[in-house]
Simulated scan of single mutants.
Amino acid sequence: MVRNFLFHRVNPERDKLWDPMDVALFERCIQYISKKYTVVLIEDIAFSDERFTKNKYATIMFDDGYKDNIQYAAPILKKYNCKASFYVVTDCIDNNIPTWTHVLDYSFQHTNVSEIDLSFDFLPDEFKVNNIPTAEKRIAYGSRLKPYLKKITHEKRGLVLDQIARSYNDIKVPELMMNWDDIKELSAAGHYIGSHTVTHCMLGTMSDETEIKHELLNSANRIQEKLGYFPLTISYPIGSYNDTTKRLSKELGYKIGLAVNQNIYDPAIEDLFEISRIELYNEPWWKTRLRISNALENIKSLIKYK
């Protein structure tokens, strides 16, 4: 049994649509986790028989590759002598452009454009708009749209994202990502660098195997070019995967596939290509602690099946 704790951004600045974990909360998490569990890398423990017999392992993971990972998170990891795995989106690193999910949030928060034609036939009526007149309404609309976009096909999502980018062309996307020197520094410090695809596509929603292979293979090849090894691990963006994702990941040379699933990883039930992770958020400590212990998910399960 292994508790895999997933983080994204760690930052003192707040965000209305996707709030980074506050630095003080992150340190409290790492202090608590390192005291309660033996912190290891999933790349070191995944193939060990000890994962079946020892119930005190935990891992620390980061998805995406944001600059605040090295600015704020890495010093805290060093303070508590913890190694972490960082799964990077290689195009985002190469071009210093955040993931599409962050760009989407940023666009709705910072544009001054009211007109936007989102009259796609496949969108529900609530999302078919041609004008969102105020900043407050744009933020509210964006908060509803993003979860829906995660449920539709890769192709349809792309059409909507392209239209939003064309309409909200008054914004300048912020430069928030690590560069390869940052990533090499993390690797030299003993952290592991793995793949989070080329462009942060939701692999489980993609139907074109050539495109899926591009996302999987080109990201790994870029890491190999920069760091000298083909990564063991693919972290599926937004936890999206299916049997095709798993098969192609294996065929292309990965050894580990990371989902989310908000649960403890049990090797007796899950295979190495759908490893569960527990994502932690910027929440009150009592709620974060319930997530760490997995009590929150157990409570939800009891309520669901009551």
Rank of each mutant, 00 (worst) to 15 (best):
V88S: 06
N81Q: 14
F47S: 10
G65C: 08
A58S: 09
D63V: 01
Y87F: 15
S85V: 09
D63L: 01
N81L: 11
S85K: 04
D63W: 03
M61E: 14
V40R: 15
M61L: 13
N81H: 15
F86D: 00
Y87P: 01
N55R: 14
S85Q: 11
C82V: 15
Y57E: 02
E50Y: 12
I70M: 06
N55D: 14
L41N: 05
Y57M: 07
Q71M: 14
K83F: 09
D68Q: 08
K78C: 02
A73L: 06
A73K: 04
T90H: 04
F47R: 11
I76T: 11
K83C: 09
F86I: 15
Y80L: 07
D63F: 00
V39D: 04
A46I: 14
A46Q: 02
T90W: 03
A73E: 01
A74E: 15
S48W: 04
I42D: 00
S85G: 14
I42Y: 11
F86R: 05
K56Y: 13
F62W: 05
Y72K: 01
F52G: 07
K79F: 07
K67P: 03
N55L: 08
F47G: 11
Q71Y: 11
C82L: 04
T59E: 01
F47V: 10
N81F: 06
Y66W: 12
A84C: 05
S48D: 07
V88L: 07
V40P: 04
K67M: 10
E50N: 14
L77P: 08
F86M: 13
P75G: 03
L77V: 01
A84Q: 05
I45P: 04
N69V: 13
N55G: 13
A46S: 14
Y80R: 10
K54G: 06
A74Y: 14
I70N: 02
N55K: 15
N69W: 03
V39M: 01
V89M: 13
K83Q: 10
I70A: 10
T59F: 06
Y66V: 08
Y66L: 07
P75S: 03
Y72M: 05
A73F: 06
I70R: 09
A74T: 11
T90V: 05
P75M: 08
A74I: 12
K78L: 09
I76Y: 12
V40H: 12
N69T: 15
Y80Q: 09
F52V: 12
T90F: 08
V40K: 15
A74V: 11
F62S: 01
D64Q: 09
A84W: 09
D44N: 11
G65W: 07
Y87C: 02
T53H: 10
N55V: 00
I60M: 05
Y80W: 10
D64M: 08
Y57Q: 06
K79D: 03
D68K: 05
K78E: 15
Y72H: 14
Y72R: 06
S85E: 13
T59G: 05
K67G: 03
A58V: 08
E43D: 14
D44A: 00
C82G: 04
P75Q: 04
G65N: 08
K79E: 03
D44G: 03
V40T: 15
A84D: 08
D68A: 06
P75Y: 00
Q71E: 15
E43S: 15
K83P: 01
P75D: 00
N55P: 07
D44Y: 07
F62P: 01
V88C: 00
